[in-house]
Nucleic acid binder design. Structure first.
Lengths: 149, 149
DNA sequence: GCAATACTAGTATATTTATACAGTATATTC
DNA sequence: GAATATACTGTATAAATATACTAGTATTGC
């Protein structure tokens, strides 16, 4: 079991089950025949940026990063690799061209991601217009987009 | 200083400053003349559902609750009110019909929301097929969707 | 191959956080 | 007002988590 695999598994576990403390991770992995200590879990949690959330019921529970960004960015990235055509900026605007029919979904993703630099966005069939907070944000956002391709 | 006020203050602090551990709260409050112990902070944090997030820089940092879901659900809700046509279940499947061209984006939102009961989803032009974990999840998810309309 | 370097993980322990318990204050009921 | 219940907090400590240190293993460059 490689670290990467374990990380995958931890993410899964956290979504499927209520895990209240690191020892519980250890126990569950034990049962699956994976020998690991609390220390390693602590380090994994740090890397994965998992968080311990006080639950309504009085207990605590580990959860995925509030940085859903992490997930969303991954999705965006995957999506971009498929559908991206071009990107350009002008003033505080960023214009992304996609393959026909894909822009709408891309816009929804960008909105959901809630990026600091984005003020709003409008999507057509093969074009997304992103209005950024200012010129600098637009450039920053363009760089971000390019990094996803 | 009443508990309520202190809670207010803690929320503010968490947004304004990087607070790495509970003792830091204590110190900051000390400096403002508020005498309080770590134990109380621990209880406050639990009530406020503040979370300790592993930061990119290797440290940790307290943060506001990840009521992210709240935001995504709000978006989904807004979206549904615009584009929803019908919903139905069969076995562990849920089928949502939308106005033409909207299904893809709805699918993206549903995926992003990462609902417990959803296993995966496929979107066409005016239809989203959601595969749930089991029959019961499907019903639960349908109820969720209906509540958004 | 071998040395140098970088990762990874366990052990032991330090640090941090949660909580049982007890005391004090505040509200509620009679 | 006295009696009782409820809420809040500090102290002391238990429980949980992070990390220094060490050793093993893989990777790189010679």
């Amino acid at each position: 079991m490689k670290k990467k695999e374990r990380h995958q598994l931890l993410r899964q576990l956290v979504q499927q089950s209520v895990i209240r403390k690191q020892e519980e991770f250890v126990d569950i992995l034990q049962k699956r025949g994976i020998d690991i200590t609390q220390a390693t879990i602590s380090r994994d949690i740090k890397e994965l940026q998992l968080i311990k959330v006080p639950a309504k019921d009085g207990g605590y529970q580990y959860n995925l990063p509030p940085d859903m960004n992490y997930n969303i960015s991954k999705k965006l990235s995957r999506f971009m690799k498929d559908a991206f055509v071009s990107v350009d900026t002008q003033k505080e605007f960023v214009l992304i061209k996609t393959l026909p029919g894909n822009a709408f979904a891309l816009g929804a993703l960008i909105e959901t991601a809630n990026y600091q630099e984005v003020f709003g966005c409008i999507a057509g069939d093969d074009t997304v217009l992103i209005i950024c907070r200012d010129e600098e944000s637009a450039e920053r956002f363009q760089r971000r987009i390019i990094s996803y391709i």
